[in-house]
Design a binder for these strands. Structure first.
Lengths: 199, 199
DNA sequence: CAGCGCATGTAATCTGTTACATGATTAG
DNA sequence: CTAATCATGTAACAGATTACATGCGCTG
């Protein structure tokens, strides 16, 4: 319902899921992009501090954004008989909406689902070598993410008007450095003769 | 299908969602608990490094665990005509299964959905005072979590045989301290006259 | 010209949440 | 004695993922 009748698709406004705002946020930088491009960009930027939605969800959100009047799409047909893709551009209403969202909606707190810690929490089911393996693996992962963030941050710093992305990339760089150090600290805790003893 | 026919409920084994393993992990500490108790305990311990499932999901997972033969429930009827609740206890098969899961299943990497960073990533839609507000609010949140973890870690350290929980609580304590420091660092970045300049 | 991978999407499924229903106990 | 709150659960819904379908373009 609601989408029946000739109701010229004017903004249904109201509740978009956060993912929808994230996609609209990607578009708010002004470029005209396809779902595929958005996914790749989301992996590279959003993925460092927010999870990156799957292709199918991005396509779904784009359809919803267009229905709400926040984005407009057009079919781009290439010279030869190539596939023909659909690209999206944000509308003025969309820009106003995402700005209002960013300013007025209460920020929901960070959500963490830390797989490695979930394992180590069950230390009574593991032996020390397995715990070490989990931690070193996690340490390496954090290190890789740190390197990625470092590179991207350096790159973003060159582009002006990218204050936001540059800021959060810098944050991510520090975050993953901290994550790596925390893994190292825990490895030391495990190696320590007995109870960590509060200093 | 599959659940039809009198197939005496013997372990269907195979794929439990991670949440299922987390609940079974809670039970693996040996206590007999109701869904309500599990929820409260999950909020206090799991919630610091992994999200805490809702009541309804816990109830659902418990039913699934029992069907799989990993837990057994019984109705506890109180002396007077009180409500009568259902408590769960892990079975030997359940303990073996969760141990095998903890040891053999590849650890999935940490998942982060950082609401505050999502906002700051859209800095071009905010003005400086709004950015500061997001950050100070986040800083306070991290500080509160830090205090919680600190208390719980101290408490867990007294109980022996709680190596795992104590270890992860200690990790959480450091994690939220780092999170608070990162927020402070970003506040300084914003205040800084211009580009952060890589030292 | 056969097969593999990229690019664009759709459909089916499953995980997890919010809203609701029920009863018992406690506070005013 | 009524209202609020705790405790236990169920049902309906929404968000998100995996699997599938399609077609072009390149490599062997």
């Amino acid at each position: 319902m609601a989408d029946t009748a000739g109701g010229a698709g004017a903004a249904e406004a109201a509740g978009l899921p956060v993912t929808g705002w994230a996609v609209l946020g990607l578009l708010s930088f002004g470029r005209e992009l396809s779902g595929y491009d958005l996914k790749k960009w989301a992996d590279a930027s959003l993925g460092l501090f927010y999870w990156s939605p799957s292709f199918s969800q991005i396509y779904g959100e784009l359809r919803r954004l267009e229905r709400a009047g926040y984005a407009r799409s057009r079919l781009v047909a290439p010279e030869s008989g190539s596939r023909g893709k659909r690209t999206y551009r944000i509308t003025d209403e969309g820009l106003a909406a995402v700005r209002a969202w960013a300013r007025e909606t209460p920020v929901d707190p960070p959500v963490l689902k830390h797989g490695p810690m979930l394992r180590l929490w069950l230390a009574h089911l593991l032996d020390p070598s397995e715990m070490r393996a989990v931690l070193t693996h996690h340490r390496d992962h954090a290190d890789r993410m740190h390197a990625r963030a470092r590179l991207d941050a350096a790159h973003a710093a060159t582009e002006p008007a990218w204050a936001g992305p540059a800021l959060t990339l810098r944050w991510a760089e520090r975050y993953y450095a901290a994550e790596r150090d925390l893994a190292d600290a825990m490895l030391r805790d495990i190696e320590a003769p007995e109870g960590p003893a509060e200093p």
